[in-house]
């Protein structure tokens, strides 16, 4: 019974921690961006203020039930994925439902929210939203290829399809996968760049091109919920990648350190790079990252 309540507590606390970390990272990123741009920048808790403000907006305009539910899809997807990712390696408290952290399940679960958001954006009838969605989906096909190549390479090499298995492998060999399978890691990290939607891969949301893309018609509490789920989702992706390639973490401090360093890769790339055109972004993923992925598989197979 005790463990049951611990479990429930875990369900409540994990999303909160994920949200807190995600929001803080967002603030730190804004600070770092500002410093690189010769500015002081907003306070670190600025994102929290933004979200609070959006929640406290008095009106929220929607164009129908799908737009209303779109953000719910997003938050559901992000929190559910969080529940199925082993946040800390050996902690049962942070484990939640991640029996084994099945990778294929997570790959599909992550799409759930985007699909809901895309449907919500579609219902608004805004052409910018539709263009943004079209770009986003096309980009997804782009970065999924190297990512899957990388994952498949790892799955074959270590004979497992779960994060737990990969963690165990890194434990037994006591070296991270980045050292054991560098090509797969490169492909995965390059795909990660696209997954985080920082420049040069922020095509779906390009303000100068399609206003803010899918989010064009979302405001107030809808946007707030989207940002909340975005923060959690950032955390989920970071933890996932840290678990897969960088040996996971045993305590929160290590986790935060590792995820932060990983997070800086797309952020720093984004600060100094302009945005690709959609087809260029897709083709980027189909060139070198795919080649690295194939090399990774070939190394494993041969």
């Amino acid at each position: 019974m005790d463990s049951f309540w611990m479990k429930i507590l875990g369900f409540v606390i994990t999303p909160l921690v994920a949200f807190a970390v995600g929001v803080t990272y967002g603030g730190i990123v804004r600070k770092i961006t500002a410093r690189i741009q010769n500015r002081v920048g907003p306070p670190i808790y600025q994102n929290l203020l933004d979200i609070t403000k959006l929640y406290s907006k008095k009106t929220a305009v929607n164009h129908g039930v799908m737009q209303h539910l779109g953000p719910v899809f997003a938050i559901t997807a992000s929190v559910t994925s969080l529940f199925f990712v082993p946040v800390l390696r050996d902690s049962s408290f942070w484990f939640n439902l991640s029996f084994d952290g099945d990778l294929i399940f997570l790959l599909y679960m992550m799409v759930f929210g985007s699909l809901g958001m895309a449907l919500g954006a579609g219902q608004t009838g805004n052409p910018n939203s539709a263009i943004g969605v079209s770009r986003g989906l096309a980009l997804m096909v782009g970065y999924e290829i190297p990512f899957v190549l990388s994952l498949v390479a790892l799955m074959i090499q270590f004979q497992t399809t779960s994060i737990h298995g990969l963690l165990a492998v890194q434990d037994t060999f006591s070296s991270w996968i980045i050292f054991q399978s560098p090509f797969a890691t490169i492909a995965g990290i390059l795909a990660f760049l696209g997954m985080m939607h920082y420049a040069p891969f922020d095509v779906p949301f390009a303000p100068a091109e399609v206003a803010s893309g899918p989010a064009s018609e979302f405001g107030g509490k809808y946007l707030a919920l989207m940002m909340t789920s975005g923060s959690i989702f950032t955390f989920v992706k970071l933890v996932l990648f840290v678990n897969i390639y960088f040996g996971g973490a045993e305590d929160l401090l290590t986790l935060i350190l590792k995820t932060f360093i990983l997070y800086m890769i797309p952020v720093l790339t984004g600060i100094v790079n302009p945005r690709y055109r959609t087809e260029q972004a897709i083709q980027f993923f189909w060139k070198w990252p795919t080649v690295f992925g194939i090399i990774a598989i070939l190394i494993v197979v041969l």
Partner: peptide, 8 residues
Amino acid sequence: NWENSSVN
């Protein structure tokens, strides 16, 4: 078929 991979 491999160990430790299941989805509930």
